[in-house]
């Protein structure tokens, strides 16, 4: 059965090559043993959950929330990705993943875990005229800026 085995090998090889390349394109690969990332503090007093808890479980919270919001239309804000971005966007870049020191990118490159969020999700909080912050949506509607601000602090996407 070498024929099949070699076939299998080729397939595996192709898969491996694919997987390797996909991880390789992740920006800012951490070098082993490098210093722990310095994270900028978020805007608020306290994260929505205990910091230690968030370190371990943020991905589960986000995934759970994403499915609820996306598929059921549940739009609580406590564990929304937009909430994370609003709070943790860097003061320098205004983003959570634009530079390697930004909140999400810093840790994820250190841990060498590829992030799939930012292909689609905005890494920056919504730009909105400061005077309109918090205005109920329909009122801000002028046609040039149709994006009514979500209730401040964010409903989810």
């Amino acid at each position: 059965m070498n024929g099949m085995a070699s076939l299998g090998k080729w397939l595996k090889l192709a898969l491996l090559a694919g997987a390797a390349a996909l991880t390789a394109v992740a920006p800012h690969q951490a070098t082993a043993g490098s210093a722990k990332p310095m994270l900028e503090r978020g805007k608020g007093e306290q994260c929505v959950e205990d910091t230690q808890f968030m370190r371990r479980n943020h991905m589960d919270l986000l995934k759970h929330h994403r499915n609820e919001t996306m598929r059921q239309g549940i739009r609580t804000t406590k564990h929304s990705l937009k909430g994370c971005v609003d709070c943790h966007a860097s003061t320098k870049t205004g983003s959570v993943a634009a530079s390697k020191d930004d909140f999400c990118a810093a840790c994820h490159s250190y841990a060498a875990v590829k992030l799939d969020c930012w292909d689609c999700h905005a890494t920056k909080p919504k730009k909105r005229p400061a005077t309109l912050a918090g205005m109920p949506p329909a009122a801000s509607e002028t046609g040039t800026s149709p994006m009514a601000p979500a209730l401040a602090g964010g409903k989810t996407q």
Binding site: L61, H65, K78, G134, A152, G153
Partner: peptide
């Protein structure tokens, strides 16, 4: 997870009321 209503931080909340 989804049983808690978010309370916007106080300054934004004030804006909200004013602009409402």
């Amino acid at each position: 997870l989804h049983n808690q209503t978010e309370i916007p931080d106080s300054s934004e909340r004030r804006d909200f009321l004013k602009l409402g």
